[in-house]
Design a protein around this nucleic acid. Structure first.
Lengths: 215, 215
DNA sequence: GCTAGAATAGACAGACCTGTCTGAAAGGGT
DNA sequence: ACCCTTTCAGACAGGTCTGTCTATTCTAGC
């Protein structure tokens, strides 16, 4: 994962003068841009190294082969998404708000002008049964699933695992619709559905109906 | 689209002796098998014609180029899915049953041992911004959307368009989860969520709660 | 029986891709 | 000042892909 280099030059160049990023960083940035926009299968090594301004040997020394670069690219994107969602959720207080807040974080992601669908779904579709890619996807999807299940439990769902799975379906569907239908409002649709599902999944509170804000 | 040949040999061979299918049919069958299992980008022309037992020139005479074959493959799959869903829905009577029946039809599709995700999603991810593929996908997705919206209206939803979009999210999400998570129960999860969304989308029926069978 | 249109097998061109290798330049640490 | 690791530039091999083309064989209708 983390290479050892950056500290040395970061110590030498505290913050002054951009200090050209390492070959690894430039490769990852290029991979993130080109692989995501055009697909991991379509984009060849030559275009990556040309865009990164890096020699081919550096790529193979750093990542071993193309699959290694694809894997690093997916890991990078997964971490980035996790950070974006986690950070967005700090804005919300109640479990219910936090649960629905995932879809607002998603809204911020899919309205990005160069959003192009879930990188894991695309890479998995392109690479077929490549196990390395499937592993990365499984890990990321496991995190999303656990996030939803945990939030469902905190929000008081009677069956947090079921609600978590349902919310995950909405989340995936919204990502997919944003790309396939070019519909950046998909996350709003999903959020509304999530709210209805959550209400339906709460234990029947005596006679006070759904939830206080909704008489 | 439709070639002119098949009638002549179908007239000559009424029903007796299998009468080897035309080159077009064999190509389409091979494309459907190989493209779907391994991806439209991964599978080359040579493997298609070898598997179909057809000469390369026949392929190019019939479909023009590879994109034409991919397009025909997607149209074939779209029609097949439409038929499967439409036929499955004839089993149900009430609008509510028919609406939820879509997810049962989906259950039959995704539990097929060689189910490998939605062909349109995979092809779109592989081919990038290929407009021909996007057109086929748009047409199919429009049909699914209209199906859900119509069923939502028949079932009495206050906002059929919103409910239709929500159901489509669940449907897409279940297809995706079936492939990415190798979870054939995804359609059941989606069905349960759809039932809850439908209940929540019905007009508040005086005081009679959820759905007493729709009076 | 004959002929015209289809289908077949396969070579071929031109392009692209991954991964390896050589050989030189650069730049910080001691 | 020296060294040593990293990086650069690019040629190269071996393979695969699409699409074209030639030349032969099959088949159906007159």
């Amino acid at each position: 994962m983390a290479t050892k280099a950056p500290e040395t030059q970061a110590a030498k160049r505290p913050a002054r003068q951009p200090a050209r990023p390492s070959a690894r960083e430039r490769l990852l940035a290029s991979a993130n841009e080109l692989f995501y926009r055009e697909g991991v299968q379509t984009v060849g090594i030559d275009r990556i190294i040309e865009h990164a301004g890096v020699a081919k040997a550096s790529l193979y020394n750093t990542f071993g082969n193309k699959e290694g670069l694809v894997r690093a690219y997916l890991a990078f994107r997964g971490n980035r998404n996790r950070d974006r969602i986690t950070r967005a959720l700090t804005r919300f207080r109640t479990p219910r708000e936090r649960l629905l807040g995932v879809f607002e974080a998603q809204g911020e992601i899919i309205t990005d002008p160069d959003y192009n669908g879930c990188a894991f779904v695309s890479a998995s579709a392109e690479a077929g049964a490549d196990s390395a890619i499937a592993d990365e996807a499984d890990e990321y999807r496991g995190w999303v699933r656990a996030l939803f299940t945990g939030l469902a439990a905190e929000a008081g769902a009677t069956d947090p695992d079921l609600l978590g799975r349902q919310l995950h379906l909405l989340y995936d569907g919204a990502n997919l619709s944003a790309r396939m239908d070019r519909d950046p409002t998909a996350s709003s649709t999903a959020r509304a559905a999530a709210a209805a599902l959550l209400d339906a999944a709460l234990p029947p509170a005596a006679d006070g109906p759904r939830h206080p804000a909704r008489p």
